[in-house]
Design a protein around this nucleic acid. Structure first.
Length: 401
DNA sequence: AAAACGGGGCG
DNA sequence: CGCCCAGTTTT
């Protein structure tokens, strides 16, 4: 945990004191006039703040309100929650989702009884020790219930600050969140920290929304760099996460009569280039049952040329057990391997084949350099990828070790 | 620091 | 149905 003073020194806010004061006044004036009047804003009972914050983590305000009333009526304080039985809790939570969180709340209530003598802890660091309370909820309770100048940094506050200052760094990075937290430390109104946080939450939910396509004038526009430049829609900057695309592969485990495996070195154009693998062929759909042809054809389509150059005839490739139809369950028996790259996910289905000795080889004229037959005992002498190691670990009808 | 978790809501 | 969300927990 980086200390507050360290962060402020590392990231001084690029505003004058007058600007900061004007920002607070503008924000709180808007909140006093326009902010939402919500049930848990009636008083500063930390228990009620806590219950509402946990509920709001997962559901919209309108949905939470009836649940909130019911919960508080049934379990009005920490002591009641600490003693509540599981069925009561689940009943009160039914329909909200994330049921483990209400279980965490009961654990936290018991922590309050045992670790804090039943007195709701006030210090941010103490709040963090409670099950289910992380940085956001600890900040919300410390500021709203106990008037401490702690930011409640949720998605709303991150979005607003990133727009105000046009923060170009990826907000998913820890360093960027530190910078935003540092700015919030300097912005938060020490006189009304709870209202300050709730004002920003309301602003984020009602005005400076995520999909703010048309940058309307808004109450904070004079403080909003992204409004001045009409760039609000560009913030917050998030890592262009190439959503990992999913791909299915058949991994052919081909063994000859001598017990050697056929392996292929990936070319420069491929992923994992230079490393040796069982021949892999992408498959765009997985079928319930496949005929021999449906299983062998993809291999032949991609590598038939090479296999012929190796002296392998199509007919010499036999499915294990020599069956014509393969059920999906047969596949499961041979195992699958999942491999995750940063940008793609490969699901590999092992396909064990044997090369029929009787019609095994013809003479090879020009041996393709990218293919070898290799003894299982020598697999550790060639460079292979983690994926290939996983394939070797997968359940096979024969033991490659 | 990154991944796992989690179940309702959404396209 | 599969993906996404937004925080906490776990590794």
């Amino acid at each position: 945990m980086v200390k507050r003073q360290q962060l402020i020194e590392r990231y001084p806010i690029p505003w004058t004191e007058e600007q900061v004061a004007a920002f607070r006044d503008t924000l709180l004036a808007w909140y006093d006039q326009t902010g939402r009047d919500l049930p848990w804003r009636q008083d500063q009972d930390p228990y009620k703040i806590w219950v509402s914050e946990i509920m709001l983590q997962q559901t919209q305000v309108a949905t939470v309100i009836p649940y909130y009333y019911r919960f508080i009526e049934e379990l009005p304080d920490v002591a009641a929650l600490a003693q509540a039985d599981e069925d009561t809790l689940l009943g009160l939570w039914q329909g909200l989702g994330y049921y483990s969180r209400v279980k965490n709340m009961k654990v936290a209530a018991q922590q309050i009884e045992t670790d804090f003598a039943g007195e709701f802890p006030q210090a941010y660091q103490d709040l963090l020790t409670l099950k289910g309370i992380g940085p956001y909820t600890a900040g919300a309770i410390a500021s709203i219930a106990f008037n401490q100048a702690e930011p409640a940094m949720d998605g709303n506050l991150i979005r607003i600050v990133s727009r105000l200052f046009e923060i170009e760094e990826d907000v998913t990075l820890t360093a960027t969140q530190h910078k935003i937290r540092a700015y919030l430390y300097q912005l938060i109104d020490p006189e009304r920290p709870g209202d300050f946080n709730q004002a920003l939450m309301d602003m984020g939910a009602m005005v400076m929304t995520p999909h703010q396509d048309r940058p309307d004038p808004h109450p904070l526009k004079d403080f909003d760099q992204s409004y001045q430049h009409q760039t609000s829609h560009l913030y917050p900057v998030k890592k262009a996460k190439l959503k990992a695309s999913k791909h299915t592969y058949l991994a052919y485990v081909i063994q000859n009569a001598a017990g050697q495996f056929l392996m292929r070195r990936h070319t420069d154009q491929e992923l994992l280039s230079g490393l040796w693998h069982f021949p892999l062929v992408e498959q765009d759909m997985v079928m319930e049952t496949v005929s021999r042809g449906e299983l062998i054809d993809p291999l032949w389509r991609d590598f038939g040329q090479d296999l012929q150059a190796l002296g392998i005839k199509n007919e010499a490739l036999k499915l294990l057990h020599n069956r014509n139809q393969y059920q999906q369950t047969d596949f499961n028996h041979y195992g699958q391997v999942k491999h995750v790259f940063s940008h793609r996910i490969w699901q590999c289905q092992l396909v064990p084949l044997i090369l029929s000795p009787a019609e095994e080889m013809t003479d090879s004229v020009n041996w393709p350099e990218d293919f070898i037959w290799i003894d299982a005992s020598k697999l550790d002498q060639i460079p292979i990828s983690t994926l290939q190691k996983k394939l070797l670990q997968a359940r096979l009808p024969f033991d490659p070790k």
